[in-house]
Computed example of a mutant assay.
Amino acid sequence: MGEQIRITVHGDTDFVDKSSLAQTDPAKVKKRRERKSKRVRAPKNPRPQEWLAKDLSQGYIADYKPFNFVDGEGVRCSLYVSGCLFACPGCYNKVAQQFKYGQPYSKELEDQIVADIGQSFCQGLTLLGGEPFLNTQVCLSLIDRLRKEYGSSKDIWSWTGYTWDELQKESADKLEMLSKIDILVDGRFLEPLKDLTLQFRGSSNQRIIDVQASLKAGKVVLWKNLVR
Rank of each mutant, 00 (worst) to 15 (best):
K94N: 07
W159R: 01
C84V: 12
T160L: 03
L222F: 07
P132L: 12
S37L: 10
L125H: 05
K65H: 04
E176F: 00
Y80A: 10
N205R: 10
S179G: 14
K154E: 04
D210E: 08
P89G: 14
S204V: 15
G72D: 02
P46H: 09
A213W: 00
N225A: 02
Q212M: 04
G161K: 08
K54G: 06
K174W: 01
F99D: 03
V16H: 10
N205V: 05
L167Y: 00
P26E: 06
D155V: 00
V29H: 10
L125F: 14
E34P: 03
E108W: 10
V114D: 08
A217G: 06
D63Q: 06
Y162T: 02
L167V: 10
K94H: 15
S179H: 10
S106T: 15
E170H: 07
G202Q: 13
V185C: 10
C77K: 00
Q58S: 11
V138K: 15
I5M: 10
D17T: 00
F15Q: 03
R39Q: 11
F189W: 04
Q112H: 00
D116R: 07
Q199A: 09
Q212C: 11
V220Y: 05
Y162A: 01
V221A: 04
K65W: 10
Y92D: 02
T24E: 08
A27I: 00
D173C: 02
C77T: 12
R201H: 05
D71Y: 03
Y150K: 01
S57Q: 11
K216A: 09
T160E: 04
E191K: 15
S78R: 10
P26W: 01
G130A: 13
V40Y: 00
C139N: 12
I117W: 08
A22S: 14
F133L: 03
T126V: 07
I183T: 15
L175E: 05
R76G: 12
Y105H: 13
E108D: 14
A87C: 11
Y92P: 04
K30S: 09
K174F: 03
L175K: 13
D195M: 09
L184Q: 12
V75C: 13
A42P: 01
R6T: 04
M177W: 05
Q98T: 06
G118I: 01
K154N: 07
S120C: 02
S20G: 12
L79N: 02
K216W: 03
R41N: 10
G90T: 05
D55W: 03
V75T: 08
C122P: 02
R145K: 03
S37D: 10
D186Y: 05
H10E: 15
R33C: 14
I7Q: 00
S141R: 13
R47S: 14
F121R: 11
D25M: 11
G72I: 10
Q49H: 01
S204T: 15
A42L: 15
G124D: 03
G130D: 04
A22C: 08
R76H: 01
A172R: 06
C77F: 07
P66L: 05
Q4H: 08
D116H: 11
S171Y: 15
F69Y: 09
Q49A: 12
R39H: 06
V29F: 12
E108A: 15
K94Y: 14
L21V: 02
C84R: 13
E176S: 06
T8N: 06
I117T: 04
Q168M: 14
K216S: 04
L142C: 04
I113L: 08
T126K: 11
I143S: 07
Y92C: 07
P104V: 13
Q112G: 06
K94F: 07
Q23V: 11
W51M: 00
K94D: 06
